[in-house]
Amino acid sequence: MAEVKLFGVWGSPFSRRIEMALKLKGVEYEFIEEDLNNKSPLLLKYNPVHRKNPVLVHNGKPIAESLVILEYIDETWEGPAILPKDSYERAQARFWAKFLDEKCMPAIWKACWSIGEEREKAKEEAMEILGFLDNEIKGKKFFGRQHWTKLLGLEIVTEDKFPNICKWINEYNNCSFVKENLPPKEKLIVHLKASILFGSLTMNINHIRVR
């Protein structure tokens, strides 16, 4: 049997998406929890370029970056398809997944971490970016990440502003497979609040150092 290990963080949506993909394909794996404040030598060995999780190790060979890992899983194991079979649709799925990771999530997290006027500005920027996504996903299925951000009480995504995203979120959260694999709400809230506190302290320290 192939040896599969996943180095990740329990409350990370990037790690969780890989776990869900492996479970969807019926792949047995070992999950190795990482401490982001004290990264293990193995994580640094397997991902020396970005030095972050998740990292999938299959038969001793590491694959880094969650979107790359998803494609690898989809191409390596039989089971329900993760990406569309049509080449154009697959390219579009890659584009919007990257847009979500590189544009939407940083903007949303900035709105989570900021305070006062800076937070209001960050929320406006996040809403502008989400507007592009809302137009794109009309009539399409499944959207994942807002499970994490809505738990923090950051009501950026509302039905009056982003009806298509909200519909997509509801369909995702009501999928039986998703329900079984989403982390417990209360535990995730504690994890996220701790992460945000650490992020805020880090930004304040960096600000002091710059000054």
Rank of each mutant, 00 (worst) to 15 (best):
K52Y: 09
N53M: 04
P54F: 13
V55W: 11
V55Q: 07
L56I: 05
H58Y: 14
N59A: 11
N59V: 02
P62Q: 09
I63K: 11
E65D: 05
S66M: 04
L67M: 10
L67S: 09
V68H: 00
I69Q: 06
L70G: 03
E71T: 03
Y72T: 08
Y72W: 06
Y72V: 10
I73F: 12
I73T: 03
I73Y: 12
I73Q: 03
D74W: 03
D74M: 03
W77I: 02
I82T: 00
I82C: 08
L83H: 11
K85E: 13
K85M: 06
K85P: 04
Y88P: 00
Y88W: 14
E89H: 10
Q92H: 06
F95Q: 11
K98W: 04
F99R: 04
L100A: 15
L100C: 15
D101L: 07
D101A: 14
E102S: 12
K103N: 13
P106G: 08
W109F: 12
W109L: 08
K110T: 10
K110V: 01
K110H: 10
A111W: 11
W113M: 04
W113Y: 05
S114T: 06
G116R: 03
G116P: 11
R119I: 01
E120V: 09
E120F: 10
E120N: 14
K123F: 08
K123V: 15
E124T: 11
E124L: 10
E125A: 15
E125N: 13
A126P: 02
M127D: 05
L130S: 05
G131K: 07
